[in-house]
Design a protein around this nucleic acid. Structure first.
Lengths: 205, 205
DNA sequence: GTCTATAGGTTGATAGAC
DNA sequence: GTCTATCAACCTATAGAC
């Protein structure tokens, strides 16, 4: 028989912590988009998953595209926020890269669905959201490239084609969610170390 | 005024070398699927691109899914064919990996659209084709992993988590088409060398 | 080998009752 | 905040004329 405390906690959760319907819709949509892709998920599919009718969704969101934009731009902002933080001045390029790799692993674990969605479905954003996304991604790549170039100048990183190094590192980090989806019980800290070592030992002199 | 020879050559090309309508349809479809994704391309879009009506497509193909299956399974077979070839016995694990990287770059350059399509739209294959694709991909990964493990045993490759090494290498190779699409004039041979060095120096003792 | 016409179903979204 | 009813547009695919 449940004690008073657990009943209270449950009620508290139900009334104060329960995600809003809008949040539920967005999270459920992200999960479906992740599996089948934006265009293969209908508003009826999404409503079914939530146990309501498709028309009811429009009391919480104004269009299907709005959901996509929310999912993608939220996770894109996470990356922007991190790369725009001021790294400690004394950090080497390598320390910055390690920091960035750790961040990618964390976002991969926390926002797996949204990340998949961003990678696969950004081209289905309407033109305003799409331009905003592309701008953020280009800004991110520029800052990432600057760290690599700086590391090369200081002799911390092998002097090879920086474009290929940037692409090689980012392609692995961006698609890590594919690997993580099949290895959800892998230890987070070991994953951070292993990925950092595999990616970085290659470009370190 | 065109000379007899060029008129002859043109006629020869027109009648004997022109790709069949089916081939045209498949190549055009691959290009559209690559840009927008399978579900965002309608049979009308595809027909428009070819200057005919949607109904006319069905004289050459039996369904939209058949086109997708053809595009994806053809390129999947290219990879299977290569990894199943008998490597020279005296090849080291490293030489085998270099060989595989070169092959990935070549397929990336020759079949950019189909590769994008395979990566993004395989889940829209019908169940029979999808199972065949998944089988081929798993077989490919198994053989790739075996080369890594063999290299570790022989002390050619750093002893780290083989799953993460396999994922890291394949994620870069599989998404190289994204980079290549924006750098089409990059020299093929330099690309092969740079990618191989960036990926391999990291795992070589 | 292409066309027109059309079947039969799904889509995203709205109006208005409760 | 959910429902039913409905719309106009679009989808894949077929039938049959030319």
């Amino acid at each position: 028989m449940p004690c008073f405390f657990s009943v209270f906690l449950n009620a508290y959760f139900t009334f104060f912590m329960r995600p809003s319907r809008k949040t539920q819709i967005i999270q459920t949509a992200a999960s479906l988009f992740c599996d089948k892709g934006y265009n293969a998920v209908s508003m009826r599919n999404l409503a079914d998953e939530l146990g309501i009718r498709a028309a009811s969704l429009y009391n919480h969101i104004s269009s299907k595209e709005e959901i996509l934009a929310h999912v993608i731009l939220e996770v894109a902002k996470s990356f922007s926020r991190h790369i725009n933080q001021t790294f400690p001045k004394e950090d080497s390029a390598l320390q910055k890269l390690e920091n960035i790799i750790v961040m990618h692993v964390e976002i991969t674990i926390q926002k797996t669905d949204a990340l998949a969605c961003m990678n696969n479905d950004w081209m289905h954003l309407d033109s305003i959201h799409r331009n905003r996304y592309i701008q953020m991604r280009e800004d991110y790549e520029d800052k990432f490239r600057a760290i690599i170039l700086n590391g090369m100048e200081k002799g911390e990183i092998e002097k090879r084609d920086p474009e290929i190094i940037v692409f090689s590192l980012l392609s692995t980090l961006r698609t890590l969610y594919l690997w993580y989806a099949k290895n959800r019980d892998f230890d987070e800290n070991i994953l951070k170390e292993e990925v950092a070592e595999t990616l970085l030992s290659g470009i370190v002199k």
